[in-house]
Write a protein that binds this DNA or RNA. Structure first.
Lengths: 259, 259
DNA sequence: TTCTCGTTGT
DNA sequence: ACAACGAGAA
C-alpha cells in the first residue's frame, strides 16, 4: 500500500510536464525509499530518470514495491486539475489497477479526487552506470534554457565545448552560425547565477537541440542545472529538487559529423 | 426609435461571444425597460436568456417595442471592431432594417460607425417559468469554469450533487474518475471567492459538460456565478451583470443513465 | 492549419 | 514586467 502526501502538487505537475513529451507510458516505481521513474524516449536517444525521495513527502508510506503503470497524458489531464497551492495525496493498493489522487486546497474548502486507471508496462529497467564525467558544469537553469532555445532557432544541433577557459555552445545553420561562451564565475550574493566548471579533460560533443530544449521544460524546478559530459558517453542534464530528489535527462551524442 | 449608449462596448462583446456558439440568429427585444434576448440552441437542449436593463445604458431611450433580428456571427464581426475601452451607441428605427452601431474611443479621437443588416426572425418566445430551485449555489465563476474544463478532460458529462455538506461535481471517463467537492465558505475580505449553498432538499443531476464549458465563456462578465438545480427541471447558470442585468443559461439534465 | 489574443507563470 | 502556453479566430 502506497500513501504519499506532497505539500506542493505543483512539483509533480512540473515533473510530468517536463517528461510527457518524451515518454508516453511509464512505471512509477514506489518502494520505501521513494518514487522512481526511468524511461527511454520513443526513439531511444534520450533517457529520463526521476527520483522523488521519501523525504519529499510527508507522510510517506510504502510497505512493498509497487509499480504504477501510468499513461502520462492521462496523468497530465488529472494534474491539470490541481490548483497551484494544492496539497496532493497519492494512494494505491499493493497490486493496484488505479491510482487515487486527492487535491486539497490549503483552506480545505475544496477537495478534488481522481482515480486514474493504471496499465501494465513491461519495464526495460536500465541500470545507469555511475560515470565519472570529464566535465561537469553547473549553471543557471534559465540561462541554459535561453541558450538552447536561441540556438535551436538556427540549427538542429549544438556542439558543447568544455575547456578550462569556459564552456562554449555553438551551432551551424542555414542562416548562419551561433556560439555562446560562458566563463565560470561565482557571486556570493547571487549563488543561483553561478557558473561552475569542473574539468579533468577538455570535451567537445554534439547533441540534438530538439531534445535539449525539451529537457529545459524542467527549468522551473530548479534554479541551477548540472551538465555532465564525457566522450563516448551520453550527456547528463540534472535538475536537483529539494532533499536530494532529482530529475535527470540523458542524451546520446551525435556521432561523426552528421549535420 | 432606439438609442442606447453603453459605456463599455466590451460588455456586449463578451455577452455575444458567450452565446454565439449556441445560437446563430436571434432577436434583441428592446422596450423601455431594456434589451432582452431569449433563444434556444440548435439542438433545443439549452436556452439562453439575456437582459440588459435600461439602467445599464446611459442614456437609454426606446419608445416602443422593437425587435432587432440579428445574426450573431455578423454582430461578432462588427463588435470585433470595438477597442477595449470604446463607448458603444446603438441606434435603430421603429421598424428597422438595420442596426446602427457607433464606437467612440474614450478620448474621442476615433469614431467607427457600422450599420448591421437585420433580419426577420420568427420568435419562439418561451415563457420561462419562475422556479423555486431545490438548490442554489453561488461560487466564483472562475472556479466553476475550472471545474468544468478539468472534468471535460475526462468525460462527456458531469453529475452535480448538492447536499447540505457541499456541492460535488463528479464524472466517470475512460482514463479514470474525477470528483471535485466544494464546501460553502465566506470570507469578508474576498467576497468574490465565497461559495454559498442554499438548499431545501438534496439534488443530484447529470449534465453535458460540453454545454457547461460553453456557458463558462461568460465567466469574464462576472466574478460569481449562480447555479440553480431542481429535479426534473433544467439547470440554471446565471451571471449577474451590473444593475440587475443578467445572462442566464438553462440546460436540460441528461435523463436515465445514458453515458 | 496557422496566426493572434488572452491568460498564467516566472 | 516579460515570457511561455493554451485557446480561439482566420
Amino acid at each position: 500500500m502506497l500513501e504519499a502526501r506532497l505539500e506542493q502538487a505543483n512539483i509533480l505537475k512540473k515533473v510530468v510536464d517536463a517528461i510527457k513529451d518524451l515518454v508516453q507510458d511509464c512505471n512509477f516505481d514506489c518502494n520505501d525509499s521513494g518514487v522512481a521513474l526511468q524511461a527511454m524516449d520513443n526513439s531511444h536517444v534520450a533517457l529520463v530518470s526521476m527520483m522523488l525521495k521519501a523525504e519529499a513527502f510527508s507522510p510517506y508510506r510504502c510497505d512493498r514495491n509497487i509499480a504504477l503503470g501510468v499513461n502520462l497524458t492521462s496523468l497530465t489531464k488529472v494534474l491539470r486539475a490541481a490548483q497551484n497551492e494544492d496539497v496532493l495525496t497519492m494512494k494505491a493498493e499493493d497490486a493496484p489497477d488505479s491510482l487515487n489522487l486527492v487535491f486539497e486546497s490549503s483552506d480545505n474548502d475544496r477537495i478534488s479526487e481522481y482515480d486514474l486507471k493504471l496499465m501494465d508496462i513491461d519495464q526495460e529497467h536500465l541500470g545507469i552506470p555511475e560515470t565519472e564525467y570529464a566535465a561537469t558544469i553547473a549553471m543557471p537553469a534559465a540561462e541554459f534554457k535561453r541558450i538552447c532555445t536561441d540556438l535551436a532557432a538556427m540549427s538542429e544541433s549544438v556542439t558543447i565545448d568544455a575547456s578550462k577557459d569556459g564552456i562554449k555552445f555553438s551551432c551551424n545553420g542555414d542562416i548562419g552560425n551561433g556560439a555562446v561562451t560562458l566563463r565560470s564565475h561565482s557571486n556570493v550574493e547571487k549563488p543561483e547565477n553561478n557558473v561552475d566548471i569542473e574539468l579533468t579533460e577538455p570535451v567537445a560533443l554534439t547533441f540534438s537541440l530538439k531534445y535539449l530544449v525539451n529537457f529545459c521544460k524542467a527549468s522551473a524546478l530548479s534554479n541551477q542545472v548540472k551538465i555532465c559530459l564525457s566522450n563516448e558517453v551520453p550527456l547528463l542534464v540534472e535538475y536537483n529538487l529539494s532533499g536530494s530528489s532529482y530529475l535527470r535527462f540523458y542524451l546520446a551524442p551525435k556521432i561523426g559529423d552528421e549535420e
